[in-house]
Amino acid sequence: MKQYIFTIIFTATITYALAWGVWRLSLKYRLYPGIRDRDVHKTPTPRLGGIAMFLGVTAAFLVSSQNPYFAIFWADPVSVWAILGATLLIVLVGVADDVWDLDWMIKLGAQFLAAGIIAWFGQLQIYSLPIGGLWVNSSWVSFTLTVFSIVIVMNAVNFIDGLDGLVAGVCLIANGVFFAYSYMLVRDTGASSYFNLASFIAAVLIGACIGFLPLNWSPAKLFMGDAGALMLGLLMATSAISITGILDPAIVGDNDEFGRSQLLGAFIPILLPIVVVLLPLLDFGLAVIRRMRAGKSPFSPDRKHLHHRMLDMGHTDRDAVLVFYSWTAIVSLSFLLMYIGTQYQWPGDYLIGVVFGVVGVAACLAVTFLPSRRSLPQPQSVSTPERPSNDLRAVV
């Protein structure tokens, strides 16, 4: 665990220092676009923070290559270099889009290419699904499923990038929960080492988000742009996919020692990586349906995302971001508690997670949809008639 903590601190420190440098250089050379119609901010703000995040992530990977504790996934360096190569590609395209506003077809093509690099050259594919010991027998089915999963998560994370600190905070919470899950899962399956690629990527993303958030918190000095959001989605999907290579579906689905509830023992390992990005996926799905029904491209920008709707309800920018944080934490922690309950035979097993989730979701619904005090009509003060003045100057 100490090595993971060091990775988080190292990545956060490098990312913060580089983000501050990118911010200063962007202001000096005016490397920021104008305000668009769908933007919430009113002041032109640099959008190149993704560069700093990528360099921080790259530095963490390179340092890990010299750490004997992480030699387990550097034993086959092709996978790691494929991840870094795909990440570099998506960051370059994201930076180009942040500067020149690329056509959505170019961006989508680059996303499929980056996902293909990870699946084909990195050999990180969904070979098995821990659902009753299901194996993906066809290599082309595995490749296609992997590529589409990565592209969907990338766009889901990118779609919610609309408020100060929103993506960085949501990904920080999601990767924090996923790190705890992957670490416990590897330990509980009896692996000889707790060090694995999935937990390492999650730790690196935690550090990158921590380091970037101080400059991205409302009012933001620096945005991560498409480069940062697409990078986070790419690496989050990659870490979730790599965890499927650690698990033996037969153990998860058929062995009572892995969890008292075979049903939850089978489904939680695949559900948790999904629910940690549930909110971005929901926003992504609604946006695609909305735009296609209007006869538009599914990637055409608009101002009807969930965070935009919350602003229209009367929530402030910061309130909306905190509500999104709460949703992410409640949903992901509920599934984590279900796993812990079944694994460690808590009283009530998964019911603790269910109760926590139901209460949390109810509270989040109330906070989300109840009108904010700022949106309610304010009572007008009743003015009292002025009393005649006894001051002679008032008469004169």
Rank of each mutant, 00 (worst) to 15 (best):
I150S: 12
I150N: 05
I150K: 09
V151H: 09
V151S: 06
I152D: 12
I152C: 06
I152F: 14
V153N: 08
V153R: 13
V153H: 11
M154I: 15
M154E: 10
M154C: 15
M154H: 09
N155V: 11
N155L: 08
A156V: 05
A156D: 07
A156K: 08
A156R: 06
V157K: 06
V157D: 00
V157I: 14
V157W: 03
N158D: 13
N158F: 08
N158V: 11
N158R: 12
N158H: 11
F159W: 15
I160D: 02
D161S: 05
D161A: 08
D161V: 11
G162K: 06
G162R: 09
G162H: 09
G162V: 03
L163E: 11
L163F: 14
L163P: 10
L163A: 13
L163H: 08
L163Y: 12
L163D: 14
D164H: 13
D164V: 10
D164L: 12
G165R: 10
G165H: 05
G165S: 07
G165V: 09
G165M: 06
L166S: 06
L166R: 02
L166Q: 07
L166Y: 03
L166P: 04
V167I: 15
V167W: 09
V167N: 07
A168Q: 02
A168T: 06
G169E: 04
G169L: 07
V170Y: 05
V170N: 11
C171T: 15
C171D: 10
L172F: 15
L172T: 03
I173R: 10
I173F: 08
A174M: 03
A174C: 05
A174V: 06
N175C: 14
N175G: 06
V177P: 01
F178E: 00
F178A: 02
F178S: 00
F178R: 00
F179A: 01
F179I: 00
F179L: 04
